[in-house]
């Protein structure tokens, strides 16, 4: 069994797939920065961002539904912002009491919570599109393109290669554990040992995994040395970004700046 499903890349030939990965990465970052910079409650600007991200989803052939299904990742985190509806001072909407406490929900609090959730929602969608339309080798190119040190990119490349190998090993370990975790037919008999015992077993598997990692690291180093590796990371220079894509990126950033100004003007 292989862990294919770990790879979020979705093969395709759409316009978004064909864009230079550096352009995509920079645009995604600019989009997320714009979303973060927008003041709370700038709904008009939020809607325009949503329109952009939906359009990109359509252009990418992924479809809006595909992305939305994966965009729920940030949902649990909204919980962290939930108390804001009580704590931000402002126009009270309604109040209720739990025991000795009286909680008042304010308009400003609700607005801020929804704003945070919305910003995070559009940002995560754009990140999903990036990961689904850019293969990992292309992402590595993009990382080099925006100036991430070669050493770090090389480590990330190796890491990606061996995540699959080691994830297969983890699945084998877990299956071996499951195969030996039978329950006693005696009713009411305690199953699975104490929490400390379970933790120790899991820890043993983690240690086992680290040991295999180190041993594989040694073997890979031997395989690399055998082909002339000397500790320095070398690669071909990156091809230039096509001019038309530069212009497109520039245009897109200007649009984002306009949306940002609109959002700021509206909420002053």
């Amino acid at each position: 069994m292989h862990v294919h499903f770990l790879d979020p890349y979705h093969n395709g030939t759409s316009l978004i797939h064909q864009l230079d990965p550096r352009v995509k990465l920079v645009f995604t970052l600019a989009f997320i920065v714009t979303a973060s910079l927008l003041p709370f409650g700038a709904w008009a600007a939020y809607i325009l961002l949503l329109a952009i991200v939906f359009s990109v989803e359509l252009l990418s052939d992924l479809g809006i539904r595909y992305v939305l299904k994966r965009a729920f990742l940030a949902t649990p985190f909204v919980l962290a912002a939930f108390p804001l509806i009580f704590t931000v001072p402002g126009v009270p909407l309604f109040s209720f009491s739990i025991g000795p406490w009286t909680l008042t929900v304010t308009l400003e609090g609700v607005e801020r919570l929804l704003s945070i959730a919305f910003k995070s929602w559009v940002a995560v969608q754009m990140a999903i599109v990036l990961a689904a339309t850019t293969s990992f080798p292309q992402l590595l190119q993009a990382m080099r393109g925006i100036g991430i040190p070669r050493l770090l990119v090389a480590i990330i490349g190796l890491m990606w290669r061996y995540i699959f190998v080691l994830a297969d090993e983890v699945l084998r370990l877990l299956r071996a554990r499951a195969a030996r975790s039978g329950a006693s037919p005696e009713i009411g008999k305690r199953v699975g040992g104490s929490i400390a015992w379970r933790a120790r077993t899991t820890g043993g598997m983690a240690g086992n995994l680290m040991m295999r990692g180190f041993e594989r690291g040694d073997r890979i180093y031997a395989a690399m040395s055998a082909r002339g590796y000397d500790g320095e990371v070398r690669a071909f220079p990156l091809p230039p970004v096509p001019r038309i894509q530069w212009l497109g990126l520039g245009g897109a950033v200007i649009v984002l700046l306009l949306i940002l100004s609109l959002g700021i003007l509206l909420t002053r």
Binding site: A154, L158, L166, M224
Partner: peptide, 11 residues
């Protein structure tokens, strides 16, 4: 360093 850190990161 590169193979070691890469594989340990994967682990």
């Amino acid at each position: 360093q590169v193979p070691m850190m890469g594989v340990v990161a994967a682990a």
